[in-house]
Design a protein around this nucleic acid. Structure first.
Lengths: 287, 287
DNA sequence: AATATCAAATCATTTTCCATGATGGTCGAC
DNA sequence: GTCGACCATCATGGAAAATGATTTGATATT
């Protein structure tokens, strides 16, 4: 079995087309066909059903796919492990919620980057669910996500606890005003972790929600300031806007408000020196 | 990175010689040299120190080796997973203590083999520690080992509890006779799991041990019968010899005597249909 | 010091393998 | 029917791998 064959297999499974897999891999269709056929011959069974309108994985192919993924991840890590010479260098891929990125990371990354200039930091933002997928797939080394983390293949540590607050236009009253109303709420992304909390809270007060999705935090706050709706964000993100008098902040009952942020990583993944250093850097810094 | 390169790397690391690695792989030395050099060039660092009297792994090579092993295991399992069509067939590799193999397995294997004739059973015997290594390395699918099992990468289930008994020549008295004596004991292998118990027991009575190592259970029992020393084995193994009047069996206090035998497997390993069937077969059978 | 020995590196040659582009076949849409 | 999309097949040039012979280097032996 050849690693190139496995990569080809993954590409075909992903695109469900040999032709598209070929261009994804930067090669020609006949090459893909040949590799797949050879792989099938070697393994002694069909991996794809060639049918009308594209090709689909056979049961055997379905069983092989997760192994192909795991092997690909492992091969990538093998190279990283070998290259790691005990000094913190190379890439360090972080994942984070947009709010965490805006609120907590700038100072942290600046000091870490100053301490370890040889590390290439990169940050990917997304919802908690997306980040966990990325960690599991090995696309990011570490991710900051709000609890809870399920699954024993991941290892996590609470690094900071955010206080979520309700954010309204400056003239609105607090939580009580939610009762019975039909309120427009503004969220960052559809899968946003804070959204569920906001929905629960509003529902508990007898209100109901309409949701608007935004791409940026400033966009949300700007619209709240303009009276378009309400939102729920960490206190630190909203405070500058409050001080400017553009929005009002309303504290929530602690049971609803406190969200621990975990720094999570794959348990069986390779912990590069850069990862190790970052973990202790986070532990030493007070976020 | 090529899988063949990784295989040659493993072979060289294992044999600590390119020449011997070559013959292990069925190729020529120059080929091995070239592959290693190419691998080193691609990964950007030396894997071996070519020094006086053979070659040794560099730190980078040491870091790479466990990945090479894991990838090799995974590739093997990938093939098995793909081939598995839901019927129990193909190889099923079991590990067991010699005593368990003699006492518990014959009936079990006979009935399983009759129920699933397409499964190729093979058994490897060794000490508990050796068996756990074999399970972790993927050399065996399932192993029968005495407790305790440590590590959360393994999954185990108690399948039977053995009663260990003290075995002496027919004319000897029981445990009390150990006090203050210097006794020759007979064990199967140096790392034998029962040995530690025997030592503890004798030490508690104020005796001390000299150990003789044997290759077979019958060898041990024969020597005990001949008055050469004492041993400790599961009751079932010794009973035929007792009935023949050749040895005496002395029960031990239950706290020392009862040893649960676990059936253990890798948690993240691929459970072939044959493995699944064997597990339920064991659960159904009364050992 | 000369040399025998052993293992790895190097080199030239043969062989194998692979990517490519062209072509053919099949199925569905129009 | 014909066109378009898609995969299979085939021949070929080129690249990479395996091979056997040779060289280099280190070590032990006398």
């Amino acid at each position: 079995m050849d690693l190139t064959d496995l990569a080809t297999f993954r590409a075909v499974a992903f695109t469900r087309s040999m032709t598209r897999a070929a261009e994804m891999l930067g090669t020609v269709q006949s090459n893909v066909t040949q590799r797949i056929r050879r792989l099938e011959a070697r393994l002694g069974g069909a991996l794809f059903d060639r049918g009308r309108g594209g090709i689909t994985l056979t049961p055997a192919g379905l069983r092989l796919l997760p192994y192909a993924e795991r092997i690909a991840v492992l091969v990538g890590e093998a190279g990283a492990a070998m290259r790691d010479d005990g000094t913190a260098n190379g890439p360090l891929r972080l994942g984070s919620l947009e709010t965490t990125a805006a609120l907590r990371l700038p100072g942290l990354l600046a000091s870490f980057s100053k301490a370890y200039p040889a590390v290439d930091l990169s940050i990917e933002t997304g919802t908690a669910a997306e980040l966990l997928v990325a960690v599991r797939a090995g696309r990011v080394d570490l991710a900051f996500v709000p609890a809870p983390i399920e699954g024993d293949d991941l290892e996590s540590r609470v690094v900071v606890t955010e206080e979520l607050v309700l954010i309204t236009p400056p003239d609105a009253s607090g939580l009580a005003a939610l009762a019975g109303c039909r309120i427009k709420t503004l969220v960052l992304r559809i899968g946003c972790a804070y959204r569920a909390r906001l929905e629960r809270l509003v529902a508990a007060e007898g209100g109901s929600l309409r949701v608007m999705e935004f791409g940026t935090i400033d966009g949300i706050l700007g619209c709240v300031a303009a009276g378009l709706g309400i939102t729920m964000l960490p206190r630190g993100v909203a405070e500058p806007w409050q001080r400017a008098g553009r929005v009002a902040i309303h504290a929530l009952p602690p049971a609803d408000a406190m969200v621990p942020t975990h720094l999570v990583r794959r348990r069986d993944g390779f912990a590069s020196t850069a990862v190790t250093r970052f973990l202790s850097h986070v532990a030493a810094a007070s976020l």
